[in-house]
Write a protein that binds this DNA or RNA. Structure first.
Length: 291
DNA sequence: CCGCGGGCCTGAGAGC
DNA sequence: TGCTCTCAGGCCCGCG
């Protein structure tokens, strides 16, 4: 599922039940995630307290009382659900009714406050990894990530600099987690539409000139921040799997302007939304509005 | 170093 | 109904 808004939605759902709580018991039902879970994964977690639950790009980071950090990624189809004190949440009922999902409950955290947090991931592209907090900066999964798009340090000047000299398209540059960390296929398409920039445009054409970021870089940074804020406010986008931890659906898919709207009328000009393939993935855009 | 294509998995939906 | 095929929100890796 998840791009930054969905991961942030999940984080906000898990924070109240995980922060300040301890792992009473950790069950691993299938270690075969993106990488096999370490043999001592359960042992290293059991008895620890979660001091904080943060996010970096699309990674969830749980700060633990041992000095380790639990890094979690949802891959394409991962989700968490929370069951409070044995009461079935909406998503638990949903999964129970469909019953097949239980087969993909790979990791179950039993928390000291009575809550159960279950990681479900049919495609198993998700991952979990424990690393020492002191080594977090050198962690290969995080080390080459670019700036957080919603952070103050991510601005037009920085973005323009990152695009300078790039040989690729804007679509590819925005999808590159080293340039800016957290966007995926949906929000790249939506941000480019809001900024009225073509996904095919060369990334270097938004680089700064005469030491000043140009108007395109300003528009694109504004569009990125706006679309992410709007999507977070809506609880993310629910296409197939994404749900909030309490089981409710995100709403932002109703606000897509171009994503998954091939052939449909552009909401701005009445032209048609087009789908092309760039670096192996679908791109949706309006050829007449986006230049 | 950079950019691209392949591959990892399962499931949903389209087309026959 | 059921089979086969394509495609899906991510990221790592190896290649040129």
């Amino acid at each position: 599922m998840p791009e930054l808004p969905e991961v942030e939605t999940v984080r906000r759902g898990l924070q109240p039940v995980m922060e300040g709580a301890g792992f009473t018991k950790v069950e691993v039902r299938d270690r075969r995630l993106r990488w096999p879970l370490a043999k001592d994964f359960e042992k290293r977690l059991t008895g620890l307290t979660v001091e904080g639950l943060g996010r970096r790009a699309k990674y969830l980071l749980a700060d633990l009382s041992s000095g380790d950090v639990l890094i979690m990624h949802l891959g394409m189809s991962g989700s968490f659900r929370v069951d409070q004190n044995g009461a079935k949440s909406a998503i638990a009922k949903y999964h129970h009714e469909k019953s097949k999902s239980v087969a993909h409950d790979h990791v179950v955290f039993h928390m000291s406050n009575g809550a159960t947090v279950t990681f479900n991931d049919p495609r198993r592209f998700g991952s979990m990894k424990l690393v020492a907090r002191a080594k977090l900066e050198r962690e290969p999964l995080l080390r080459s990530l670019g700036p957080e798009p919603l952070g103050n340090e991510f601005d037009a000047a920085m973005f323009a600099r990152a695009c300078a000299g790039k040989k690729t398209s804007l679509k590819a540059a925005l999808s590159d987690q080293r340039v800016v960390a957290g966007l995926g296929n949906i929000y790249v398409c939506e941000a480019l539409y809001r900024a009225r920039l073509s996904p095919k445009r060369g990334a270097s054409t938004i680089a700064e000139r005469n030491g000043k970021p140009n108007a395109r870089a300003v528009a694109l940074v504004d569009a990125i921040k706006a679309v992410l804020h709007d999507a977070i406010k809506a609880g993310g986008s629910s296409l197939r799997d994404h749900r909030r931890a309490d089981g409710s659906l995100g709403d932002f898919q109703h606000n897509f302007q171009v994503y998954d709207r091939e052939g449909a009328p552009c909401r701005s000009c009445k032209g048609k939304v087009r789908r092309i393939v760039q670096t192996g993935r679908s791109t949706f855009y309006c050829p007449s509005c986006q230049k």
